[in-house]
Design a protein around this nucleic acid. Structure first.
Lengths: 158, 158
DNA sequence: ATGTATGCAAACCATTTGCAATGAC
DNA sequence: GTCATTGCAAATGGTTTGCATACAT
């Protein structure tokens, strides 16, 4: 899509500038990872990213994946959400419509929840002695499937 | 304090009922852990809880601590917050004035942030096909110390 | 040429698990 | 007496680290 290619160009430029400013090298691995993230993956975890890189025939080590992700977090092109200790997921941060998260405490499913009113109120808060950059709102509860008793498993604690 | 003892009695009763309903045994370890949590510890992590139990001359294994904490999470007497993968902290949930969290992305300090207006708005949201029980709001940014350039370390990613 | 980034494998560490012994019921 | 719970020690698994090699500059 035309629009998506524009976004890819822009984030690539942002990343390039960030790397220059911080005297980091512009390696093909780093740009390949960024490109993949801004291709399909709205939400992803490290494992799916690792496999997806392989499928693209651009093999990178996990070490490089983690290293690059830290850079992308630092320059705010990616957001990280940590749930249980062994459950982190990431999402694109640039031009990604902002949303909150609903987390079912019974089946651990995570859904997006958009609410512009909430977003505006939270973002416009003035806080003493603190300069906000971004925020995460996690609403816990029971999803409709679990409420109907369709699901019974619970793998991980909140 | 009189009031605190009341709270302890109440949570003990809640826990007892929860254990009965779920056919779990009422072991001294479980009540000792609950009592400690509702004694001093507003925020705590597993390590400080473990040491504090020792200091009280009531030694419990880490396995029991984790087991009991899961029960307390299930019956909503304790809340869990997970930050970096190896950084979880807990807080009492009963009668604990509700607050949000400010997290400095430079030094990783976490402060409480009370805002009744926000609380009301979020708690009163009606959400389609989802029954909320509780929520966590994490606002990321730069704390005043870091803004003044007093601190430079960053141990853990968000 | 220089030194940062990569890949690999080993290390890390909070949490979980298996199992024998204990003790709540 | 029965079986859930405990303590211990080993296992787990995502992430980090050390080090030799590769490659961006």
């Amino acid at each position: 899509m035309e629009k998506d290619n524009n976004v890819k160009e822009i984030v690539k430029k942002i990343f390039t500038e960030y790397l220059s400013e911080n005297k980091c090298r512009k390696t093909p691995e780093r740009f390949a990872i960024l490109d993949l993230i801004y291709s399909d993956h709205r939400h992803f975890d490290m494992d799916t990213l690792y496999e997806a890189m392989n499928e693209r025939n651009f093999r990178v080590s996990r070490a490089t994946l983690y290293n690059t992700m830290q850079l992308l977090l630092d320059c705010k092109l990616v957001l990280k959400h940590q749930f249980g200790q062994n459950m982190a997921f990431y999402e694109r941060a640039y031009n990604n419509e902002f949303h909150h998260h609903l987390i079912c405490t019974r089946c651990n499913k995570v859904q997006e929840y958009k609410d512009l009113e909430l977003k505006k109120i939270i973002q416009n808060k003035k806080i003493n002695r603190f300069t906000p950059t971004h925020y995460s709102l996690y609403i816990y509860g029971i999803c409709s499937s679990c409420a109907r008793g369709l699901k019974k498993t619970k793998k991980e604690s909140q």
